[in-house]
Computed example of a mutant assay.
Amino acid sequence: MFLLDPFSGISGDMFLSAMIDFVDKQELITTIKKVIDVDIEVKKVKKCHILANKVNIIPKDIDYNADTYKDIKNIIKNSDIQRDIKTTALDILKILANAESRVHDISIEDVHFHEVGNYDTIADIVGAAYIINKLKLKDNCLYRPINVGSGFVETEHGLLPVPAPATAEILKGLKIFFSDIKEELTTPTGAAIIKYINPKLVEGSFIIKNISYGAGDKDLELPNVLRVFRIEYIKMEKIVLLETNVDDIPAEILGYLYEVLEGKVRDLHFIPTYMKKNRPAYTVRAIVDRDKANEVAKIIMRETGSLGVRIFDIERITADRDFKTIKLFDEYVKIKIGKIDDEIISEKPEFEDLKKIAKKYGIPLKDLYKITFSKQIR
Rank of each mutant, 00 (worst) to 15 (best):
F2M: 04
L4T: 07
L4K: 02
P6K: 01
F7I: 12
F15G: 03
L16I: 03
S17V: 06
M19P: 13
M19I: 12
I20D: 14
D24E: 13
I29F: 13
K34H: 10
K34C: 07
V38L: 06
I40K: 00
V45K: 09
A52G: 04
K54Q: 07
I58F: 11
D63E: 15
Y69G: 09
K77Y: 11
Q82I: 13
I92Q: 03
L93N: 04
I95E: 01
S101C: 00
H104C: 01
V111M: 07
H112R: 03
F113Y: 02
H114V: 13
V116D: 02
N118S: 13
Y119R: 12
T121N: 15
D124N: 05
I131T: 01
N140E: 01
C141A: 08
R144A: 14
V148W: 01
G151P: 05
G158W: 10
L159I: 14
A166I: 01
A168I: 05
L174Q: 00
K175S: 13
I176P: 02
I176H: 00
I181P: 08
L185I: 11
T187N: 05
P188G: 08
I193N: 01
E203S: 14
K209I: 02
N210T: 06
S212N: 05
G214Q: 06
A215V: 02
G216A: 00
L222N: 06
L222E: 03
P223R: 01
N224E: 01
R227W: 00
Y233K: 11
M236G: 06
K238E: 10
V240Y: 07
T244F: 10
P250V: 10
E252L: 09
L254Q: 09
L257I: 07
E262R: 10
G263V: 05
K264A: 06
K264Y: 02
D267V: 04
H269N: 14
I271P: 01
Y274H: 11
M275T: 11
K276H: 02
N278Y: 08
Y282W: 13
R285M: 13
D289K: 14
R290H: 15
A297Y: 01
K298H: 06
E303P: 08
T304V: 00
S306C: 10
L307F: 09
L307H: 05
G308R: 04
R310H: 03
D313K: 04
A319Q: 06
D320S: 04
R321E: 07
F323P: 08
K327W: 11
L328A: 10
Y332C: 13
V333L: 10
G338A: 13
I340W: 06
D341N: 12
E343Y: 13
P349Y: 05
F351V: 11
D353M: 06
G362P: 03
I363Y: 02
K366N: 14
K366A: 14
K366Q: 13
D367Y: 07
L368H: 00
Y369F: 13
K370C: 10
K370H: 07
T372A: 15
